[in-house]
Structure formats: structure tokens, C-alpha cells
């Protein structure tokens, strides 16, 4: 009996290790290759050496910085995504609070419209949105990357669900003391709702960090080009050097990695809880 169990455990580990290899080999190859020269990368393709970091040259990294304004792409992405997150938290939570706690004419109708909007796929409004942004003269500006994405129907929905589950008593007693709605919202509701704020912030950040199609269309200038689009351009910019591309990809992975290392707990809780409620 016990012996069987040990065998089962060993079997389990073998499966886990094989799977781990499958999931990690491309990334290991990416990082390891970024430190090798071009001939080394190609020579190692047919052997296990492809995954062995036997040299450590930073030439590919300096090569990337010589060929593209990598830091600029990185800052552009960080800046515009952060602004979407911050403004989005503010705008969407305010609206959600109105839907959760206030009485006003047309509230329920308005909210059901918001819920219905969740279903509209962004891809289907791409062209008209482009024309609207053009009409505002916002092509190639940060506005184009940020403003259309501040309000988010799904985030309003998430916030509202959370606010509905908050105990009303605290807010009511504050109101008795004569506190205004705005004050109640900022001083009582927001501190109580920290988890949902963090979750929505993370989800928004990760979604927009991966944005590709819209920035590709709305920005043509290097000065407002986000990282994802920059990577795609670099990938197609001759001469195509595996080492350079690998170095750029490795660096481009770091920001999201940091986010996950620090916020993983909230992220998983967040999507899971969103899943339950839907």
C-alpha cells in the first residue's frame, strides 16, 4: 500500500516535471539566447545547449538600445496604462456607487444599458472609433490611447456588485452626522472597498498592457508608440537578428512579471470572485 503510494507520487512528479518543461522551454530559450551571439544561437538549435547559458554577453541588449528607443516604448506603455487605470478607478467607481446606493430617475434603465454594453466587442467598433478620434484630432496623442478606455462597463458592474454587499450602516450614520455623499464615498466607501479597487486596477492594467490593435491604428508616431507595437515593429525591422529580438522580448516581459510577483494574490482572488458572481 505504502509502496504504491510512493510510486504514484514519483509518477506524479514525472508528469509535473514534463509539463513544466513544456511550459517553460520557450521562455528559457528566449532568456538564454538573449545572451548569446547570432552564430551561437543557430549552432545550438539542434542540441541541448540551446538552453544552457554558457556565455553571458550583453551585446544583444546594447544592440536593442542602439536600434530602437526601447525605454521610450516602455515609459509610453507604463504611462498610458497607468493613467487609464487611475482615471478608470475614479470614474467607474463613482458611477457604480450611484447605481448601488442612490435613487434617481432612470437608474435601473441606465444600469441595464451599462450591463448590455459589456457584450459589445471592441473589435466591432474599431473603425468608427478611429474616425471619432480623428475628428477630435487625437490620432498620435496620448488622449487617443487613454480617453476611450477610461469608462468600462464591466468595471462599473464589478464595483456595483461590491458596493451592494457593503453594510449600509456606516454610510447611514455618517449621513446622520451631516457628511456629504462625496465625503462618504471617499472617506468611508473607498477604504472599505480596497480589494475591489486593487482587483479592478490589476485587471485593467493587464488588459491594456497587452493592447495591440488599437495602438497600432491610433498611433503612428514613435513618440507615442507603446511597447507591444514597438516589439512588433522591431520584429519586422530588417535585419532580423534573433539575439536582438530575444533581448528585447526578455526586457519587455519584466514589467508584467513584477506586477504579478507583487499582486498575484489579489489577481487570482479577483478573477475568481468575478467568475463566481457571473
Amino acid at each position: 500500500m505504502k509502496k504504491n503510494r510512493i510510486i504514484a507520487q514519483i509518477g506524479l512528479y514525472v508528469v509535473l516535471i514534463l509539463l513544466a518543461i513544456l511550459f517553460l522551454f520557450p521562455l528559457v530559450w528566449m532568456v538564454v539566447s538573449s545572451f548569446k551571439t547570432e552564430p551561437e544561437i543557430f549552432a545550438d538549435l539542434k542540441s541541448f545547449r540551446a538552453f544552457v547559458p554558457y556565455t553571458f554577453s550583453l551585446d544583444n541588449y546594447t544592440g536593442v538600445f542602439e536600434r530602437i528607443p526601447f525605454i521610450r516604448y516602455l515609459l509610453t506603455s507604463t504611462l498610458y496604462v497607468s493613467v487609464i487605470v487611475l482615471l478608470g478607478l475614479f470614474v467607474n467607481s463613482l458611477a457604480a456607487y450611484a447605481f448601488a446606493r442612490m435613487q434617481f430617475k432612470g437608474r435601473d434603465l441606465l444600469f441595464s444599458i451599462v450591463v448590455a454594453l459589456i457584450i459589445i466587442p471592441f473589435e466591432s467598433i474599431l473603425l468608427p472609433l478611429y474616425l471619432i478620434i480623428d475628428e477630435f484630432d487625437w490620432l498620435n496623442t496620448y488622449q487617443a490611447l487613454i480617453i476611450p478606455f477610461i469608462a468600462n462597463a464591466f468595471n462599473i458592474f464589478m464595483f456595483r456588485q461590491f458596493f451592494l454587499n457593503l453594510p449600509k450602516e456606516l454610510e447611514e450614520s455618517a449621513r446622520m452626522d451631516g457628511a456629504s455623499t462625496i465625503r462618504i464615498f471617499f472617506q468611508i466607501v473607498i477604504p472599505l472597498s480596497k480589494p475591489v479597487f486593487i482587483t479592478v486596477a490589476l485587471l485593467t492594467f493587464i488588459t491594456h498592457w497587452g493592447d495591440f490593435m488599437w495602438p497600432l491604428i491610433a498611433t503612428t508616431d514613435e513618440s507615442v508608440r507603446p511597447l507591444q507595437v514597438g516589439m512588433q515593429f522591431f520584429f519586422h525591422q530588417p535585419p532580423v537578428r534573433y539575439g536582438h529580438v530575444m533581448a528585447a522580448l526578455t526586457m519587455a516581459t519584466i514589467p508584467l512579471l513584477i506586477i504579478f510577483v507583487f499582486f498575484q494574490k489579489y489577481y487570482v482572488q479577483g478573477i475568481a470572485s468575478a467568475g463566481m458572481k457571473n
Binding site: 484630432d137 490620432l139 497600432l216 515593429f233 519586422h236 525591422q237
Partner: peptide, 22 residues
């Protein structure tokens, strides 16, 4: 100087400018 990049970024820019008198 307008970046041309991969794809048709420069052409897109001309398209946009043409429709908006720019």
C-alpha cells in the same frame, strides 16, 4: 519626419490627414 515602420503607418497617417484637412 514621419516614421514609416512596418505595415503602413506612414500611409495611415496620410489617410487620416487627408480626411481631416491636415
Amino acid at each position: 519626419i514621419i516614421p514609416s515602420g512596418a505595415g503602413h503607418a506612414y500611409e495611415d497617417k496620410i489617410n487620416a490627414a487627408a480626411t481631416s484637412n491636415g
